[in-house]
Amino acid sequence: MMKDEKEKIDLLFQQNAAEQLAGVDWDELNTAISSRLDETEHSKTSVRKHATIFRIAAGIATAAIVLIAVIVGINRPEGVKLQNGRRAVVKFIETKGSALVEIKHAGGKGKAVVDIGPSRIKLVKCDVRIIDFNGKRPKTDQRPSWIIVKRAEPLFADNGANTDMVDIMCLF
């Protein structure tokens, strides 16, 4: 590009900028900026105030939820009979390796061996083998742990009446 054209472009810009800036009322601009900053400061304070109110409300709501959960937990029926061949929700006390679940099923009292694996997962679907209450301990490398069934409401259809295998959902 010719140097002359380059200079002309720059000159046009300078000319326009000078003309535009000549009409600016600097005090007015300053007042407008200050006013915007005041509004910003005010909304910042307002946001902080609302955040505090929100935190308090959230705290109250959390406390209420915890209270309701405790009341529901206390009132939950325990020792409900588990029918053989049905799925159930059980709560584990021990959560390491294999676990032995004591349950009551249609045929009487029994025990179930549950492999819960090494990981501490929140929810697991397990195959449960019902064993004789007075039978021998299962021959596994890991020692079984005792687990008390907290709730045993049948949830799903069974796997068949002539089998002693039960699927249970385990919460722990």
């Binding site: 810009f13 326009n16 900028a17 535009q20 800036l21 009409g23 600016v24």
Partner: peptide
């Protein structure tokens, strides 16, 4: 800003 936008 005037240089960028051309208008005061």
């Amino acid at each position: 800003a005037v240089r960028m936008l051309g208008d005061a």
